[in-house]
């Protein structure tokens, strides 16, 4: 009798415990991510950079396109970064406020990176999942196509396209969208191949769910972890890609700007002792890239624990 009572108490305690909520996969991952100091620091930096890019305009004393003619030719000594004149980061070689221009450039660079990663996530994941799930000849043809596309030096083709159809931000987005999904589709396919043989997919097939619905409902959600990790690592690649083209002067066009274009303009003024023109855009470029790399690494450790 006494024993049964104790059992009842125990049972109650266990029930109580069960209500404390089990730890989900995502909660585990969050815990691992938060313990990773570099990753958290990266995330904080990213939030700050994003705030700077999207709300920095409020702090700027000048419009990014405002040309201060009185500074032209004299910006080496009168356009220096200072709080008094309101040019916090100084002016560029045309007498435009570098703070406002850096805000604008960071915004464009972030946008390009995020759009490229989004295209990769949507197109690449679906493409890879379909190829992996359907398999057979379809898979062969689809992945061979990816192989062929990957063996083409896309930077050159994209520049050819930019020259022929005119340099515009739309073409840039299109070009980045065209290549960004290739890697992702390979990763998604590889992962799908192992998911395909799991019991829950078998169960879905047995209950007569259509293949495409299985891909969307059962395969794609299980790709989420790896897709998140690789899209985080893809964003800096896309930023580098865009900055590369803008550095050559073939990317975004004036009056728009991006970090690559600003670095290029700053580098061309290096001889004149106006190092801030290169320094500030370079600083934002580097911290953004580092932050993305650290966050991506942290996410990989958090979501893909077998990799450690």
């Amino acid at each position: 009798m006494k024993l049964a009572q104790r059992d009842a108490v125990l049972l109650e305690e266990t029930m109580g415990l069960a209500e404390i909520r089990g730890r989900s996969l995502w909660a585990d991952a969050r815990g691992r991510f938060i313990r990773n100091k570099a990753a958290v620091a990266g995330l904080v930096v990213l939030v700050l950079v994003a705030l700077f890019a999207f709300f920095g305009q409020v702090l700027a004393q000048y419009e990014p396109q405002h040309v201060d003619f009185s500074l032209m030719g004299a910006n080496a000594w009168r356009g220096v970064p200072s709080l008094e004149t309101g040019h916090y980061f100084g002016v560029d070689s045309d007498g435009r406020d570098l703070f406002a221009r850096t805000v604008q450039g960071t915004r464009i660079s972030l946008l390009v990176g995020i759009v490229g990663a989004l295209v990769a996530v949507v197109v690449g994941t679906l493409y890879g999942a379909v190829a992996g799930y359907v398999g057979g000849r379809t898979d062969q043809v689809m992945m061979r196509t990816v192989d062929i596309l990957m063996s083409i030096p896309f930077m050159f083709v994209l520049i050819l396209m930019l020259v022929i159809f005119g340099r515009s931000i739309f073409m840039l987005f299109l070009g980045i969208g065209l290549i960004s999904w290739l890697d992702m589709s390979r990763i998604a396919r590889g992962q799908t191949l192992s998911i395909k043989n799991k019991e829950f997919v078998e169960a879905a097939v047995a209950t007569g769910v259509r293949p495409f619905t299985i891909i969307l409902r059962h395969v794609v959600p299980n790709l989420a972890g790896i897709v998140i990790v690789y899209s985080t690592l893809l964003v800096p690649q896309m930023i580098i890609f865009e900055s590369f083209i803008s550095y050559l002067g073939l990317g975004v066009q004036e009056p728009m700007t991006s970090l690559g274009a600003l670095i290029n303009q700053g580098a061309s003024q290096m001889n004149n002792g106006t190092l801030w023109m290169m320094g500030f855009p370079l600083f934002f470029f580097l911290i953004t890239l580092f932050a993305f790399f650290f966050v991506g690494d942290g996410l990989r450790d958090a979501l893909d624990p077998k990799d450690r």
Partner: peptide, 17 residues
């Protein structure tokens, strides 16, 4: 890790500098 975030168009002006 450092070199990953230093693409060649960043390296080049820094080297010249």
């Amino acid at each position: 890790i450092g070199a990953q975030a230093l693409p060649n168009f960043v390296m080049a002006p820094i080297l010249v500098l």
